[in-house]
């Protein structure tokens, strides 16, 4: 009977028990806590603990085998002065400047077009746009290598028909980001477009009807109704594409391997290379110091964006 009574408590009603009975109450509910425990155990062991450990390791010099020793801020000092660090952050800023605007505007444009009521084959186009999302970018990246090959690449083969090229896509520092950028767009734009479509379809159709009755033009309707209501979706696209770019890994790993001369190397790929020791002994201290710098960079960029797109009324 006790169980039934408990279930009938309405959500608004606060429990009136005093703190003395609180502990007994918690103990009585042990099955509930047991059921949600896996999440908390997994989070603590596999995510919280490694973050804490990484923080300690970032002040040590360690190769994973010999004795670790404390070096204070040396790792941070070294990493901040390392030309490769400057290179990877320059790269990531270039990626951000290209991929974030594309990652916001392309889905908005595709979503708006695929939502047009008179458009035929809407479903077909939506499906085609979404197929790349369910594929593995790293596996398709192997195809990309051949696509952008110099002598026998398919893209150069196509361009030769119109008298262009051949371009040294994967070896020319000025061009090598293009394969990475195009692969990323190819693999992610379908997902973002789906989010935009969901947002557009959630807008109350009555709003458009009354705007038309009031004589609003298509452009005015877009500017005063669609855009403000799509604000959460736009912020979502902005943040997810930013985080996606900052944690780029698979695309450069398989398509360009970070080259030429580190011009497509990303922070995460660099962290992997030095932390695992793909060439030479692992530099765990440097890798973890760099991951904290990367996290700080990500937080700064994301909060700057949130500040830029804040609602003006809330100031």
């Amino acid at each position: 009977m006790e169980h039934v009574e408990r279930l009938q408590v309405s959500p608004i009603e606060r429990p009136r028990r005093r703190s003395r009975g609180r502990l007994a109450e918690i103990a009585r509910h042990w099955p509930e806590y047991l059921c949600i425990a896996p999440f908390f155990v997994i989070f603590a062991v596999f995510f919280a603990y490694p973050i804490g450990w990484a923080f300690v390791l970032s002040f040590q010099r360690w190769d994973g085998i010999t004795e670790a020793r404390w070096v204070g801020l040396d790792n941070y000092r070294f990493v901040l002065n390392d030309p490769v660090t400057h290179r990877v952050f320059t790269n990531i800023i270039r990626y951000l400047l290209i991929l974030v605007p594309l990652g916001v505007f392309l889905p908005l444009a595709f979503g708006a077009i695929l939502n047009l009521p008179f458009l035929r084959f809407r479903g077909v186009f939506r499906t085609i746009l979404f197929i790349p999302v369910v594929t593995s970018l790293v596996v398709v990246g192997i195809v990309w290598r051949l696509l952008f090959g110099t002598a026998n690449g398919w893209l150069n083969g196509l361009l030769a028909h119109v008298g262009l090229g051949p371009y040294n896509w994967l070896k020319d520092p000025a061009l090598a980001q293009i394969p990475i950028v195009s692969l990323t767009i190819w693999g992610t734009v379908g997902f973002s477009t789906l989010i935009v479509l969901g947002g557009l379809q959630a807008i109350d159709q009555d709003l458009y009807d009354s705007a038309r009755v009031d004589g609003a033009s298509g452009w005015q309707t877009f500017w005063h109704i669609t855009l403000p209501l799509m604000r959460p979706v736009i912020v979502f696209l902005l943040i997810t594409s930013t985080i996606g770019v900052i944690t780029l890994f698979s695309q450069p790993y398989v398509v360009t391997r970070g080259g030429p001369a580190n011009h497509t190397l990303t922070p995460l790929l660099h962290i992997y290379n030095i932390g695992i020791g793909t060439s030479g002994a692992p530099r765990i201290g440097d890798a973890t110091a760099l991951s904290f710098l990367l996290t700080a960079f990500m937080l700064v960029v994301v909060f700057a964006q949130l500040w830029l797109v804040r609602r003006r009324g809330e100031e």
Binding site: P50, I51, L57, G64, I243, I284, L294, T295, L299
Partner: peptide, 14 residues
């Protein structure tokens, strides 16, 4: 939280 990918090294060590 941007946890996973920035903790690959300590995750590996764990």
């Amino acid at each position: 939280m941007p946890n996973g990918q920035t903790t690959i090294i300590p995750f590996y060590l764990l």
